[in-house]
Amino acid sequence: MDPPQVTEADIAKYRGMVGAPLVAPTLLEPDTLRRFVHAIMDGDALYHDVAKAKSSKFGALAAPPLYPVHAFRRAPDGADPLEMLHADPDADGSGGSDGMFFGLPPIETAFKRLLNGGNEIEFYRNLAVGERCVARARYANVNLKQGKSGTMLLVDVETEFRTEAGELLLINRQTLIWR
């Protein structure tokens, strides 16, 4: 099969594009935090002991540093991603929800294979119980590159996560590679 033909003209429109702010459908709730820290198997008392958390630098129960990237789950009235399994038994179940674009229009490309090229993250503050997370993403770099196995599309998605009050939580720079 011939490799896909992708040109600079196909990708230029994405470069520097900024997505609309994406608002988490819910506040961080104590039970959500409980299930989350169970899943990452982090028994840190600051995630469940209210008295300890209040006397710590966080001043309240707060989520693990990287929690905000998982705060954007299906809204109560959101489409059911598992519906697709009725129409297509081979569907992967993701419903196109990949947790990478955070409000940006996904890159449309003829490349078929998508790889995670790595992350670089800066942390400033943890999301506290009762707070809501807002993400704003931009395509920081969108470039074609010649590799040993042919042309690749390299995309850096830079996403800032803030509280609704605008306080910076973290910045996540994720490199995506299409081949």
Binding site: R35, F36, H38, M41, H70, R73, G93, S97
Partner: peptide, 16 residues
Amino acid sequence: SHIMRWSAAVENWHRI
């Protein structure tokens, strides 16, 4: 089961 617990916590339903 550990992997399923994470997938459920973050509602990642990818079947792999």
